[in-house]
Design a protein around this nucleic acid. Structure first.
Lengths: 169, 169
DNA sequence: CGTGTGTTTCAGTATTGACTGAAACTTCTG
DNA sequence: CAGAAGTTTCAGTCAATACTGAAACACACG
């Protein structure tokens, strides 16, 4: 790992570490976005990120659950390979959609508490609730628009063949 | 603070605590969304949230910086009052826009690292970068649409009818 | 069915960072 | 100008949690 790469990985760790994910999760994902080859064994990752096998295992599981990495095996090789599959941003957005949803739920509960008070008592909360409900509904459409633009524009399509799923022997 | 309110405040704390903000920040914001009166002194907050004055001070400063609360004073009253001003969701979104922007910056740095490698080496990262750049560009427009819908429909609208936004008593 | 390779689990450790509380500072008021 | 009320700062404490490392586990191959 070059110094540049090291810094990129560190920054991804800081960034995702500050947004719900663990620092290690950010570092691992960052590395998997730039590493060569794109598929890495648990051992590769432990070496590159200078982390314990335990940390790799747990973090990989978490990232896999979040849909941010994929786990592959190939016949005749007992090891597992991890990689960032094409279309990952989709999983990311879906995930943040879940966050929106949860927030809407919490604010709805709050509005219920204020139900028997004068209407102006719930103005503040209602505004926030409505905004998030709006976003929860509209963001998927935005994602579709992005996908369309991406296909039309040609570069780096997603949801298509996905050749990188194959491990080149 | 009733048990219901207590729970709402706690959940807001958990929620925002898990998304970058501190738990205390979430609790304070949650309380300011439902409290009566809507303006609270530092002392009110310390009592309601059972927190130290130091915590209130620091947290209030953080929330104020994020644009999530407003600080006001009244002539003849030395105390400061805090409240959630109308249009706060705007500050929230603006803030998350900043997050997008930072992420785009980080990924751009990563792409620069991969500049002298074959194009397929940067496919993974480019896709993520493009998605976030797209969102950074499009979200403000979405906010405008929400504002318009809010004005057109009076209170609690979201673009379309959206009956599910209403809380049943 | 044993052996060797690889992965997961889990208790322990270390670190981070949020909150406390007292002291310092600021700013109105009499 | 003295005094009081209020706020901020900051060093210390505490709790949460991310990572380590060794032991248990799973699996393929000979």
């Amino acid at each position: 790992m070059t110094p540049d790469e090291e810094q990129f990985v560190a920054e991804m760790g800081q960034f995702l570490g500050a947004s719900g994910m663990t620092p290690m999760g950010g570092r691992m994902w960052g590395w998997l976005l730039i590493c060569d080859p794109p598929e890495q064994t648990a051992d590769d990752l432990a070496t590159a990120l200078r982390a314990s096998r335990g940390a790799i295992s747990g973090t990989a599981r978490m990232l896999e659950t979040a849909g941010m990495i994929k786990r592959l095996t190939r016949p005749g090789d007992r090891r597992e390979y991890f990689s960032v599959p094409p279309g990952t941003f989709d999983a990311l957005i879906t995930n943040s959609g879940r966050t929106f949803r949860r927030f809407v739920k919490v604010t709805e509960q709050g509005l219920r508490i204020l139900a028997d008070r004068p209407p102006e008592a719930s103005e503040r909360l209602r505004e926030v609730h409505d905004a998030y409900a709006f976003f929860e509904r509209e963001v998927p459409a935005l994602v579709e628009r992005f996908k369309d633009a991406q296909i039309r524009g040609g570069r780096s399509t997603t949801g298509e063949p996905a050749p990188s799923d194959r491990i080149p022997a």
